Amino acid sequence: MDLADQPYAHLLEPHPGPLRADQRYDTVRFDDLELDAPQADGASFLECALVGLTINQGRLRRAMFTECWVERNRWVATDLAETEWQDCTVAGSLLAGVAVHGAQLRRLTLRQCKLEAVNLRAAVLRDVVFEDCQLRDVDFAEARLTGVSFPGSSLEEVRFGRAKLSGTDLRGATRLELPDGHEGLRGALISSGQLIELAPQFAKALGVEVRDA
């Protein structure tokens, strides 16, 4: 599936920027823009396409993204706290040093994306798919994950401390490295192979000493 497959693709009108706070963007296409420190708190995006967009040190707190297509974006040190995402696809994009804490993510697909040092603390994720993604130093502490899956994704230095998981499927992850917060995996699905790999970490978290002789 790509942008041309979206039912609103033929309605999109180009928008040269900039982004503005509390602005409503409806069936708008942003192409190959580089925006430095845009201030767009409370903006809403409905049936929009963001393609080749670079945002450096932006602020989009409480912004809303509904039925949007996000492709080849690069968002660095950007504040997306308390944003709402629903029925969106994010493909081939980079999020680095991004704050998404307290956000609401529903029916969101991230495909072939790289998430580096992303803060998702206390966020709510429902029916979210991380497909063929790289997650490094991503913090899900105190987040609620329901029906979330990670097929083909690598999770490195990912934290789930005090998270609440329900129907969250980690079996498809190609790498699962958790430095701490193992108790937050309660309610998750993992494979037997992953269990064996995580066993020493589980033992350490429980204060169990493993000794063969």
Rank of each mutant, 00 (worst) to 15 (best):
G167Y: 04
R74Q: 15
D137I: 08
E47N: 07
Q57Y: 08
V129I: 04
D31Q: 10
A81Y: 02
R72C: 10
R24Y: 15
R29S: 13
E13F: 08
E197L: 08
A81V: 05
V128P: 01
K164W: 09
L189Q: 05
L12C: 05
R175Y: 03
A103P: 07
S93A: 08
E197P: 06
D36L: 06
L185Q: 04
T83F: 02
R126W: 12
D31L: 15
C48W: 00
F45M: 11
F140Y: 09
W75V: 03
P14S: 13
A40M: 07
P7V: 05
L105C: 11
V90A: 03
V128A: 01
R211V: 15
S192T: 15
L80K: 01
V124D: 04
R186F: 14
A77Q: 05
A141F: 03
V76P: 02
A40H: 02
C68M: 10
Q23G: 12
A81I: 03
A37Q: 13
R144C: 12
V118P: 02
D5Y: 13
A141Q: 07
W85P: 04
E67N: 06
I190F: 07
G52T: 01
L115T: 01
A103L: 07
N73S: 13
L60G: 02
D41E: 12
Q57I: 05
S153M: 08
A99F: 07
D32W: 14
D137L: 10
S93T: 11
H10E: 09
L206I: 11
A77E: 11
R186S: 14
D26L: 13
E47H: 15
L60V: 07
R211N: 15
D79C: 12
T89H: 02
E47D: 03
A37G: 08
L120E: 03
F30Q: 03
V118H: 00
L110Y: 02
A122F: 04
V208E: 10
L176V: 09
